[in-house]
Every structure is written in structure tokens, then in C-alpha cells.
């Protein structure tokens, strides 16, 4: 009985500590960041190494980096997931190799992606410190998440759909386009949103691939500074940059909360619907 009560108290304590941590983090960012936040902050260019001015070019650069990452990763991930789920046996040698290397990829730390991106995209392919290099590095990093969510989404589509399509004489290709992908669409969108969130949150993989330059990027082959790199640079290398770092962190957090919340909500809603239907 005493044990039972002690356990209850300890478990409530851990839940309260996690919740208060979340609130502490959020309120701290809000209190420190909110006074700085204004429309001008979002559009202006940074001045005085970021101590003054806004984060306009940095938001644009982040957007481009994420866009490059997604346009490289999404088609590849979609093809891989479709192949794994619909076109091959799970015990084949190729599919096992693909599954295994995706598992490996999922566990690679982000700084190692940074090293690889620097060696491969920046130096070997000669792209230099550029938005393309950073975006492609992030594409490699988000591949496993995308592949897994898309594959899980496809696996959750009931087999009845496939049988009906086969009975109607549809080719697998058209069954995929007209039946399977549309019914898995919410899962695909959620996967995309999660990867966007993961890319926008990344710092370590970007420092040596997309670089530090905080000017407005003129093209995709310019260096561009991502929001997370800006926070890092302001807090570590710029004395007196904390105020703007807080505001930037707040912008990033708000964006990520919206993106992640949408993804989680979408997945949950879709699963509930599916369970009700089957």
C-alpha cells in the first residue's frame, strides 16, 4: 500500500516536472522574445551582425533550403516506399538491403550528415557553401522519416483495395495513382510536414554546407543562413545578440509547433477514420 502510494506520488512528480519544464521553456521564450517581435523584424535585413535589424533574408534562406530538401527527398522517398510496400517481397535481397540502409541512415547523427554534405556536395560536386548543398544534405537526413511515414501509410491501406483493383483489371500503376496514394494522402502529407519540421530545426548539418552568410540569397548557389544557424551564431559568437536570438527562436518555435501539430493531428485523425472504416 505504501509502495503503491509512493509510486503514485513519484509518477505525478515526473509528470508535473515535464509539464512545468515545457511551460518554463515556452514562457521564457515568450517573455524574452515577444517584445522584439514585430512585422518589421520578420522582413528587415539583419544589421550589426544580427544585433539589430530583423531576419528577413534568413527566413527566405531557410525557406529555400527546406524547399530544395523536400523537392529532392520527397520523390525519392515516395518511390522507395512504394517499391518497398507494393512492388517487392519483404524478404528479397534488394529490399532487405534498402530497409537496412534506411535503418542505418535513420541513426546517423546530424553532425555526420554535415561532414558528409561538406565532403560530397560542397567539395566533391563543387557546389560550395550554398543553399543547394545544405538542402541536399537535409534531403539525405530526412529520407528515412519520409520513407517510413509513407510506407506506414501505404501499409495501412486495407488489402481489399488492392484486390478490388486487381479484380477490375487495373494495372498496379493505376491502382497506385487512383486508389492507394489518394487514400494514403493524409499520411503522405503528415510525413512531408514532419520532414519539413525536422529540416527547419536542423543546425549541425547546415553549418558547413549552407554556411553563415546572412545576406539575402541571390540564387540557390549562394550561401544562406538558416534560422537555427542564426540562433546559434547570435548566442555563441555575437556579444549582445541574445535579444534577437530570443525573437528568432520564438519565430522558429511557433513555426515548428504549427507544422508538427498539424502533422500529428492529421495522422491521428486519419488513423481514427481508418479504424472506423475497417
Amino acid at each position: 500500500m505504501i509502495k503503491n502510494n509512493a509510486a503514485t506520488i513519484l509518477i505525478y512528480c515526473s509528470a508535473i516536472s515535464v509539464t512545468s519544464l515545457f511551460l518554463w521553456l515556452l514562457t521564457d521564450l515568450l517573455i524574452q522574445g515577444l517584445p522584439k517581435l514585430s512585422p518589421a523584424f520578420l522582413f528587415e535585413a539583419p544589421r550589426d551582425a544580427g544585433r539589430a535589424g530583423g531576419i528577413g533574408p534568413i527566413i527566405i534562406a531557410t525557406g529555400w533550403i527546406v524547399l530544395v530538401a523536400m523537392s529532392a527527398a520527397a520523390p525519392l522517398a515516395l518511390a522507395t516506399a512504394v517499391w518497398l510496400v507494393e512492388f517487392t517481397r519483404p524478404d528479397g535481397i534488394f529490399s532487405r538491403f534498402v530497409e537496412f540502409s534506411i535503418d542505418v541512415l535513420a541513426s546517423v547523427p546530424s553532425i555526420v550528415f554535415g561532414l558528409f554534405g561538406n565532403a560530397f556536395f560542397c567539395v566533391y560536386l563543387g557546389l560550395g557553401f550554398s543553399i543547394v548543398s545544405g538542402g541536399l544534405t537535409l534531403a539525405c537526413m530526412t529520407l528515412p522519416i519520409l520513407i517510413r511515414t509513407v510506407a506506414d501509410g501505404l501499409r495501412a491501406v486495407p488489402d481489399g483495395y488492392r484486390m478490388v483493383a486487381a479484380a477490375l483489371g487495373m494495372t498496379r500503376g493505376s491502382a497506385l495513382v487512383h486508389l492507394l496514394l489518394p487514400s494514403a494522402a493524409p499520411a503522405l502529407t503528415a510525413g512531408l510536414l514532419l520532414s519539413i519540421g525536422r529540416s527547419a530545426a536542423e543546425t549541425a548539418a547546415l553549418i558547413f554546407t549552407s554556411g553563415y552568410v546572412d545576406r539575402m540569397p541571390g540564387s540557390l548557389f549562394d550561401s544562406g543562413r538558416a534560422l537555427s544557424v542564426h540562433i546559434y551564431d547570435l548566442s555563441m559568437n555575437v556579444a549582445g545578440g541574445d535579444a534577437n536570438a530570443h525573437a528568432t527562436a520564438l519565430v522558429l518555435i511557433i513555426f515548428l509547433l504549427i507544422i508538427n501539430n498539424a502533422a500529428i493531428g492529421l495522422l491521428r485523425h486519419w488513423r481514427k477514420q481508418h479504424i472506423a472504416a475497417s
Partner: peptide, 17 residues
């Protein structure tokens, strides 16, 4: 075949790292 090729490409990322 095309999808399989793309899947192996994706798998090669880990190898090339």
C-alpha cells in the same frame, strides 16, 4: 524497375556517407 532503381539510389546514401 524504375521504382526499384530509385529505391536502391536512396539506399546508396547510407553507403556513400
Amino acid at each position: 524497375a524504375i521504382l526499384g532503381l530509385l529505391a536502391v539510389t536512396a539506399a546508396m546514401v547510407a553507403v556513400s556517407i
